[in-house]
């Protein structure tokens, strides 16, 4: 008998996740070509890669806003409230105390979502300041490149942890199904997200 499945992520939520992932990898790839001398030599064509990076960043932000605005804005507002709110069990979970029954998002996922959102804003802001600084000295700050590069390293660290939990860690990798097909096993959900009541 196959396990009963419950819906964890809506189509709109999955679309937002994958649009974000696609944009991030496009910018990470083009950014590393601009950043690492060995890749700069291998690929060359810096003006083209710069254009891809810049317009990729504009496209990334625009598409995230469009997905939220045009698919299910009310649903995203509900999701925002879910990841915004931390109850006593969430705080216990973050301190490593168990049991700490979790909702649809565990506390780590809530922190990851908040940090990812902040990183997107900071990537966009520092990228635009770098672009403007190339054209106008009023936007030229010695620390902009430190911020943009530091964000890359911080985002990469988050990504490595995220990929480990989504693809490798036996207890959590089932969650990937939720972000691809939308559903997860009910027994897995009740173990890892005991306070979540699937609709």
């Amino acid at each position: 008998m196959s396990a009963r499945l419950v819906r964890r992520f809506t189509r709109a939520e999955r679309l937002l996740h994958w649009v974000n992932a696609l944009g991030f990898f496009l910018l990470l790839g083009s950014g590393l070509i601009l950043y690492l001398p060995s890749l700069s030599v291998l690929v060359q064509r810096r003006p083209l890669i710069k254009d891809i990076h810049f317009w990729g960043g504009i496209g990334w932000m625009t598409s995230l806003v469009l997905v939220i605005a045009l698919t299910d804005p009310r649903g995203f507002l509900r999701t925002f409230r879910e990841v915004d709110g931390f109850d006593a069990d969430d705080l216990r979970w973050l301190r490593g105390r168990r049991p700490a029954p979790q909702g649809r998002f565990n506390a780590g996922q809530k922190v990851n979502t908040a940090l990812t959102g902040a990183f997107i804003v900071l990537f966009f802001a520092s990228g635009m300041i770098l672009w403007l600084g190339e054209r106008d000295t009023r936007f030229r700050f010695a620390s902009t490149v430190v911020l943009h590069d530091g964000l890359m390293f911080a985002a990469l660290a988050l990504l490595v942890g995220h990929l480990y939990l989504a693809l490798i860690h036996p207890a959590t990798r089932h969650a990937l199904r939720g972000m691809t097909l939308g559903t997860v096993r009910e027994d897995w959900a009740s173990t890892h997200h005991a306070k979540w009541k699937p609709q």
């Binding site: 915004d84 709110g85 922190v111 908040a114 940090l115 900071l122 520092s126 620390s143």
Partner: peptide
């Protein structure tokens, strides 16, 4: 539930933007 999610977001954004003054 306490609204810590937006707190993490806002503190990170504020820290990042202020680093334009002190980052280097």
């Amino acid at each position: 539930p306490r609204k810590y999610g937006r707190g993490v977001f806002l503190v990170t954004v504020a820290g990042g933007l202020s680093s334009l003054a002190w980052g280097k």
